[in-house]
């Protein structure tokens, strides 16, 4: 079953003796549903990763970094997970995120989605959907609404969208949310 896009899985493991880009590794690419599941069943669950590791699933040809020219004007919807959320909840959220991406669940806004990332951090894990344009209110809000709805996130849980241009100059936690849901 062919996917509309070919998706690349990236793995990041922070090692301070190397430059940031050197810690980012392309794992594999999937362009069918079967490839995707083969990939998913061969990698560690996100909850098993050590702190300061990331996974990212991005459309082929786009690197999961702000510096990629196609991400410069973009942004992300960020979901911060409380530390007390259990591992199974983290894995569930990440898998649901992946399924929304490969299934192109964002309908006409799917073209505006670049990919998604999960960051495992001691302070609290985070997942985010990256979008093409941070300023396109309709597109950003639609993506955020669908993301939250499909992931079954509580309506009380606050998610925020940030422009990469803002997170590049401030620490992530201080970056201003352009839209909040």
């Amino acid at each position: 079953h062919p996917l509309l896009n070919r998706w690349a899985l990236w793995f990041f493991k922070n090692d301070r003796s190397w430059a940031w880009e050197d810690n980012l590794h392309l794992v594999t690419k999937s362009d069918t549903v079967e490839d995707f599941w083969a990939m998913y069943s061969h990698i560690q669950l996100a909850s098993k990763l050590s702190s300061s590791c990331d996974y990212a699933l991005f459309k082929d040809g786009i690197e999961p970094m702000r510096e990629d020219s196609r991400n410069k004007r973009g942004g992300r919807w960020l979901v911060s997970l409380a530390k007390q959320q259990c591992h199974s909840e983290l894995d569930r959220l990440w898998l649901e995120t992946l399924l929304r991406l490969i299934g192109e669940s964002f309908k006409e806004h799917s073209r505006k989605v670049r990919g998604a990332a999960i960051n495992i951090r001691a302070k609290g894990d985070k997942t985010a959907i990256w979008t093409r344009a941070a300023e396109n209110q309709e597109g950003v809000l639609h993506t955020g609404r669908v993301y939250k709805e499909r992931l079954g996130l509580s309506t009380k849980m606050v998610t925020g969208s940030q422009a990469h241009a803002d997170t590049a100059t401030k620490s992530n936690s201080l970056a201003k949310n352009k839209f909040v849901m």
Partner: peptide, 18 residues
């Protein structure tokens, strides 16, 4: 081109099929 949209249910069924 043709839109290929898969819902969650279909994707999960593919996972479980041999």
């Amino acid at each position: 081109g043709t839109r290929i949209i898969y819902d969650r249910k279909f994707l999960m069924e593919c996972r479980n099929s041999p």
